[in-house]
Amino acid sequence: MTMTDHTRSADAVRLPAVRLDGVTKDFGSVHAVRGIDLELRQGEIVAFLGPNGAGKTTTIDMILGLSQPTTGTVSVLGHQPRQAIARGLVSAVMQTGGLLKDLTVRETVAYTASLFADTKPVDEVLDSAGITGIADRKVAKCSGGEQQRLRFAMALLPDPALLLLDEPTTGMDVEGRRTFWSAIRRDAERGRTVLFATHYLEEADQYADRIVLVREGRIVADGSGSEIKALAAGRTVRATLPDADTDALAALGGVDSVEVRGDSVLVHAKDSDAVARYLLTETTARDLEITSKGLEDAFISLTGADDEEQK
């Protein structure tokens, strides 16, 4: 691409990195994905957050062209997924497997590099992944962390415009995690789009520009970390109050739910002050506590991870 080609650049900017239109995926009678519409802008770092079985992996597989949607369409930078892969536009890093144990680190990278039309030089990729020192070591003799670096080196070979990561920092220490994310962010600033599936809510909140929450094959929330938290905003007021009048509590403004646990009453409300004032002035409530919901609670209330347990 040349800088003089303005129209093309403008088109390219507008081109979404990923676009899913009414995508569903059935496995026999199991509806893994029940209708997802999603558009990722170029250069975004997006967390794909949801409990197990929410359809995250199935969706990622469809973006990679490893499986076909039952209905709907998937496009990656304006191409069909397989076409995007053939052009080296998309890479993915798997959490486990995907390596031949009897190849050396350098052989693995050279093997992968030879399959693309254009790649960065093997030595450069080894160097930037910090595995030049173990280049001649057999993969079987590499530690888990070294193997993960190797997987990243392989994924970065074609200089992908879209990088998909499945639980990328599992097994990394705090320092490794920080280094990893600063590298990811540097590349995103140059235009690379990153979509990562994660169970680490904190990680999603801390490093993603945008969080897409999925539950039972549907997107239940989509926004920044603070927007997601605001969706499930509110506080919990807990007090000891035998024979609480739950109807009166529920009738208070801004109360979402009322729960009675033995002698305790738990009130989830947007206006916790009003609830506290009522409890302390109109009732015999004592031992009053007010707690705010964290992202963890937001996650649970939005994805219904609680319900999963009971099913």
Binding site: Q42, G43, A86, R87, A117, D118, A161
Partner: peptide, 27 residues
């Protein structure tokens, strides 16, 4: 992504597909 940095757009058509489905002697 902060609004002040304009990322370099990716031109997907500038990327080539390898010939012969990836067949090569290195492998």
């Amino acid at each position: 992504m902060s609004t002040s940095t304009i990322p370099t757009p990716v031109d997907p058509d500038a990327r080539r597909v390898p010939p012969m489905g990836g067949f090569n002697l290195t492998v």
